[in-house]
Design a protein around this nucleic acid. Structure first.
Lengths: 97, 97
DNA sequence: GGCATGCGCAACCTAAAGGTTGCCTTTCTT
DNA sequence: AAGAAAGGCAACCTTTAGGTTGCGCATGCC
């Protein structure tokens, strides 16, 4: 999941899909300096971790964002910082004693 | 940042540091099947994005977690899902009209 | 039917990521 | 003072990630 977002091009794709519109592969390729194939590969990566979802309409594949795994990730980060805060709390009360 | 967390070993390291304790390189290497050098490299990656911080004490380098960039990342994800929710809202009111 | 459009598949290339090994320096211990 | 413990550095290897090119297959349009 983190790895899927750990690439500039893919973050850029997410940004394009962010407004809630659906885009075809060719549309997503526009303005990217990369080949359609490259974009396809990136989309495949995003698809595998389900942060993006494709529905085919005729000869096109329209991609849209899927918010669920993003929420999951936030939870994970919340957990990390919560445990960290707790640890800081323990340290503080230890120092104060 | 995402890329830095996009590796199993590094997530594992973060998990070890998560309780708020400080660990030396050797300590972090224990139980990991990898060489000390490999761990060092991973730590360097985490250090570069500042999710981890090292302080040297004698001949050791003690690593600790730095919560700030994690919070930053959460904010970023919040922004994504907020914009997505907003888009869904627009869609909903459009359908209802 | 015939041609353009939108994609997928496969082969291939190159650079970078992940790992190991060997050796050297610094610090601690006794 | 000498040896052990903790690390850093550099060279090297192997796999994977990111990209391109060429071709083939549907779908849409006239």
């Amino acid at each position: 999941m983190f790895a899927a977002l750990g690439d500039g091009t893919r973050l850029w794709l997410l940004a394009k899909l962010n407004r809630g519109d659906r885009f075809s592969v060719s549309q997503l390729t526009e303005g990217s300096k990369l080949t359609r194939q490259a974009i396809t590969k990136h989309l495949r990566v995003l698809e595998r971790v389900e942060v993006v979802r494709a529905i085919r309409s005729g000869r096109e594949r329209l991609f849209e964002l899927n918010p669920a795994p993003i929420a999951e990730m936030k939870q994970y980060l919340d957990q990390i910082s919560a445990e960290w805060d707790e640890a800081l709390g323990r340290l503080k009360s230890f120092v104060e004693d």
